[in-house]
Nucleic acid binder design. Structure first.
Lengths: 156, 156
DNA sequence: GCTACAAAGGATGTGTTTATCTTAATATCA
DNA sequence: TGATATTAAGATAAACACATCCTTTGTAGC
């Protein structure tokens, strides 16, 4: 409805990494398996998140991806801005190039408050909140038959 | 952010038609010019809205498109369901195939109320409301240098 | 240094959305 | 009936998102 597949992968992957022990790097392959995402494509997404300074990446043995310091405080908004671009929060809902409080489209007045709520939510939700939700067992990060979660339980 | 280009054209076009005298058919070319939309593509969009029973179409001289009876009561939700499909309101924000109140993704609880607001807004907004907003002159339907609006004033 | 491993980078393929072009069908009017 | 105007319909193309494949580069451990 709102987020591209790329953004969905990005969010899922970052939450997954945030559920893993801090400082231990996580393989692209592992993330892809746990999310049921195509590994080669996910690799590109993760690469992009590295460029956006959300992740560190390491090559070779013991390689993989891990969150930057303070990575638990990454918000969904930060992720979305990287993967969808800045137009995400700016663009007019009807697609007009010019649409503002001064010169509004017919939906502007009614849409603005909802947009603000969306923005607030995306800025509120951090990786540690979301990772905690997943680790509690009440919320699921994948459709796969409990693969991710069972492995999670082994580690915790 | 939310709506595809196709949906944006569809909404704009229907609002434009709703600003015109009822029962008089409007040419695709006229709509496209006033919205600054590609006419051949808009024709496909309008065709689709006809199939969705929102518009009548007439060929030949004096042809064009006009709203069905009760067309002013068309809601944005009706339009969106035709152009985006039913998944629009159903799909999980993180893209999970399984995500419900019972089995929620980590965003589900926070996202649901916002989704409900969006749905409510789309169901509330009808073409006559939006057309009235445009005709009042306070809201604009196009980026073009006042072409649509000036012609509108001539007709009213 | 050698080897294995994992990400980086580039080329390519596939599907969908957006857009265009051409021809056919249809309606009006002379 | 014929000329003209308009949408319908189908084929095609362009752009983009999504996905895969292959080669290169960097790194760790031996």
């Amino acid at each position: 409805m709102i987020l591209s597949r790329t953004t969905q992968y990005a969010i899922q992957a970052l939450i997954y990494i945030a559920t893993q022990p801090r400082g231990v790097s996580v393989l692209n392959r592992t993330i892809a398996e746990n999310l049921g995402a195509p590994p080669t494509y996910l690799a590109k997404v993760l690469q992009n998140l590295c460029r956006g300074n959300l992740l560190y990446s390491y090559r070779g043995k013991q390689g993989g991806f891990c969150l930057r310091e303070e990575g638990e405080k990454i918000t969904l908004m930060q992720i979305v801005l990287i993967t969808e671009g800045p137009g995400f929060t700016e663009d007019c809902v009807l697609g007009l190039k010019i649409c503002s409080d001064k010169v509004p489209c017919p939906m502007h007045a009614k849409w603005s408050p909802i947009k603000q709520e969306i923005v607030r939510l995306l800025k509120d939700q951090t990786l540690d909140i979301l990772a905690a939700a997943v680790m509690s067992g009440k919320y699921q990060l994948t459709d796969l038959p409990a693969a991710a979660f069972s492995e999670l339980k082994l580690r915790t």
